[in-house]
């Protein structure tokens, strides 16, 4: 039963990832007064890209060819670590710190691929993506600060019941959620950190690392972006959102939450502009500070 729900959950999350991205894009288009493409546009683009010719730049090595598979594998493993039914079989990895390390693994390979493409854009993208990563990783740890303090362990699985049992006040919960949303926008590469729609070299980050990719490799990278988007949103709901007793209902709830969050993100994105690259450390420091504040409010005892 657990295995069944988990497998269905992982397959659905990966399969629906382009759809969730499509929802965000559609909401964004509507907010800009456009009709926008269909929410299924992501699938057509993927299908078209997959059947195009796959090229690799001169001077590139096997690193360039293997990097999309490696980063996609790391992200799929993150989706698999999320307890879609509310809990996972105990032999299966479900550790939040491992998720952080897997995100770092993905970033490492994206960076290597950028350096291996032997051009200016690849190096630029690799530099920007890894620099951004140095801000994201501590901020994400702080965003989960409340969680370490309350649960005392680092498993993803029993978090939500634990938090519910302690019956937090709205304030620390809200601060933790706010902090996580800041980090999520950075990790998923959305406005105000990175603009997924841009193709101008001065503004792009992740896009620069995949500039040399085409065909099947490009499709893999696009799937990876969508899967990451889904994974980081779902990760937030697992510990901040409600839990249902029935595994299938829980899975359904997650999917609804994902759709709603995607729409909300599209709305948020169209309200803001992209920050300057050199303002991003301050942005991420703010995210970390809010997370630490949430932790301090709880542990200082003032709210208990």
């Amino acid at each position: 039963m657990l295995w069944g729900v988990q497998i269905v959950g992982v397959v659905l999350a990966i399969g629906l990832a382009p759809f969730f991205m499509g929802i965000a894009q559609t909401v964004k288009a509507r907010r800009q007064g456009r009709r926008g493409p269909s929410v299924l546009q992501g699938y057509w683009v993927l299908a078209k890209t997959w059947h195009k010719e796959t090229t690799a730049p001169e001077f590139s090595s096997w690193i360039f060819r293997l990097a999309p598979s490696m980063s996609l594998a790391a992200l799929i493993l993150i989706v698999a670590s999320i307890p879609w039914s509310g809990s996972v079989p105990s032999v299966w990895p479900h550790n939040l710190l491992v998720v952080f390390f897997l995100l770092a693994l993905e970033r490492f390979w994206v960076g290597l691929a950028g350096m291996d493409s032997a051009g200016t854009f690849g190096g630029l993208g690799a530099s920007r993506v890894t620099t951004l990563g140095t801000g994201i990783e501590p901020a994400m740890l702080a965003a989960f600060g409340l969680l370490w303090a309350l649960s005392g362990h680092t498993d993803i699985q029993p978090l939500a019941p634990e938090l519910a049992r302690r019956s937090l006040g709205a304030l620390p919960w809200g601060l933790a959620a706010l902090s996580y949303v800041f980090v999520l926008l950075a990790e998923a590469g959305r406005i105000p950190v990175d603009n997924p729609d841009t193709h101008l070299e001065l503004t792009m980050m992740h896009e620069a690392t995949v500039l040399e990719y085409s065909g099947r490799f490009l499709a893999q990278s696009q799937i990876a972006v969508a899967v990451k988007f889904t994974a980081v949103i779902a990760l937030g709901w697992v510990w901040l959102g409600p839990q249902l007793a029935s595994p299938w209902a829980n899975l359904g709830l997650r999917l609804i939450e994902l759709s709603v969050s995607s729409a909300a993100l599209g709305w948020v994105e169209s309200r803001f502009v992209k920050l300057r690259y050199f303002q991003l450390p301050a942005y991420l420091a703010m995210a970390a500070g809010v997370g630490m504040l949430a932790l301090y409010l709880v542990v200082s005892g003032g709210l208990n």
């Binding site: 090229t55 730049p57 001077f59 999309p68 598979s69 594998a73 493993l77 500039l211 040399e212 099947r216």
Partner: peptide
């Protein structure tokens, strides 16, 4: 899991069937 998923992804993407092209 990492190795298996990455290997399957690499096989599906046919990493050997690639044309070398100039950089952009």
């Amino acid at each position: 899991a990492l190795v298996v998923v990455a290997a399957v992804a690499a096989l599906l993407a046919r990493v050997w069937d690639v044309r070398e092209a100039p950089r952009w």
